[in-house]
């Protein structure tokens, strides 16, 4: 068996296409002859972009009326699959909405789901998963019938345009959802950030427990700004409430692949490493010489971040 047709669920925030969608479309095109995209909200405004990455059709479930994407998108796809016009595989992003849609869809059409995929075999049938903090690669595949649900981590594939024409847009009806669709978004809040986005920045400077207190996170922000990078964080200080969740790098946070990742006061729990170990260069500053982060660092500085960072910031400021 091979994958002839793949549907890619295009994740978006507001009306912008999430960059991971282009990564998934690119990979879908490499493993399957036919690629179509499914989304919500306005589709005509993004049909050209989606087509440029190889999807011939773009289906939208339309305006969600304040509802969450999960139930509506899953129900609409489930109808098509149950009606016999489903694809061989469905690709979704390992994002908040991607996981919601995958979970709903999986239960609705009774098919399994594989999550945290970081690579696919050439035929698209075997998945790769980085486990135990990325020290081992596990291979898996679907064994049953029905489209496999592939939930893929961002940054697993490089996006490449195909030069395709605008995708043909149509609207898919959403069946009556009942109680599963009862959640309503009342308001949306954007946390203001300056500089590049965390998952797109060439330089990421992240802070952890070793900073000692929430106020010292300013050192991370200052250094990131000087290097035109983005500030990140370990789960420990996000859980402690020092910085918002949107800063978190790791298994439950963002995956980053910058030119250089500077880990400050981060010991290197497996949960963190899986989100940053693909950085081209890793610099770590930590008091504990035994910290696991040093085992994957290109340059490791054994020292107190509260001493090293101010010196580094001052030296960079002097260079102008």
């Amino acid at each position: 068996m091979a994958l002839n047709s793949v549907w890619v669920v295009v994740d978006r925030s507001a009306d912008k296409v999430a960059s991971v969608a282009f990564e998934l479309l690119t990979k879908a095109r490499q493993v399957a002859a036919s690629v179509e995209a499914v989304t919500w909200g306005d589709a005509s405004g993004i049909a050209e972009q989606i087509g440029a990455y190889g999807a011939t059709a773009l289906h939208t479930v339309g305006d969600l009326g304040g509802g969450l994407p999960g139930p509506a998108v899953a129900a609409a796809i489930a109808e098509k699959v149950s009606g016999g016009s489903g694809p061989d595989a469905i690709f979704l992003a390992q994002s908040y909405n991607g996981r919601d849609i995958a979970g709903r869809l999986s239960a609705r059409i009774d098919v399994p789901v594989l999550t945290n995929i970081v690579n696919l075999s050439e035929d698209g049938l075997t998945t790769e998963h980085a486990i135990f903090g990325g020290t081992e690669i596990l291979n898996a595949k679907f064994t049953g019938s029905g489209p496999g649900l592939y939930v893929i981590r961002a940054k697993s594939f490089a996006p490449e345009e195909s030069g395709g024409a605008a995708a043909a847009v149509d609207t898919w009806a959403v069946p009556e959802l009942g109680p599963v669709g009862a959640a309503r978004i009342v308001s949306s809040h954007v946390e203001e950030t300056q500089g590049p986005k965390l998952d797109e920045a060439a330089v990421v400077v992240s802070g952890g427990r070793g900073l000692g207190d929430a106020g010292s996170y300013k050192l991370i922000e200052d250094l990131a700004k000087l290097l035109k990078g983005a500030p990140g964080a370990s789960r420990a200080i996000v859980d402690a409430g020092w910085v918002p969740y949107s800063h978190q790098v790791g298994q439950t946070g963002k995956t980053v692949k910058p030119t250089v990742y500077i880990a400050c006061g981060i010991s290197g729990a497996t949960q963190h490493m899986v989100g940053m170990k693909s950085a081209k260069n890793i610099i770590a500053v930590n008091k504990d010489q035994e910290a696991p982060i040093f085992s994957i660092s290109d340059l490791g500085v054994v020292g107190d971040v509260k001493k090293v960072l101010p010196q580094l910031i001052e030296a960079l400021q002097k260079r102008g």
């Binding site: 085992s295 340059l299 054994v302």
Partner: peptide, 15 residues
């Protein structure tokens, strides 16, 4: 299941 390509530890400097 196979071991992932390991990243090697680089230079270590004590501050």
């Amino acid at each position: 299941v196979e071991p992932a390509e390991a990243r090697k530890a680089g230079e270590i400097v004590v501050d």
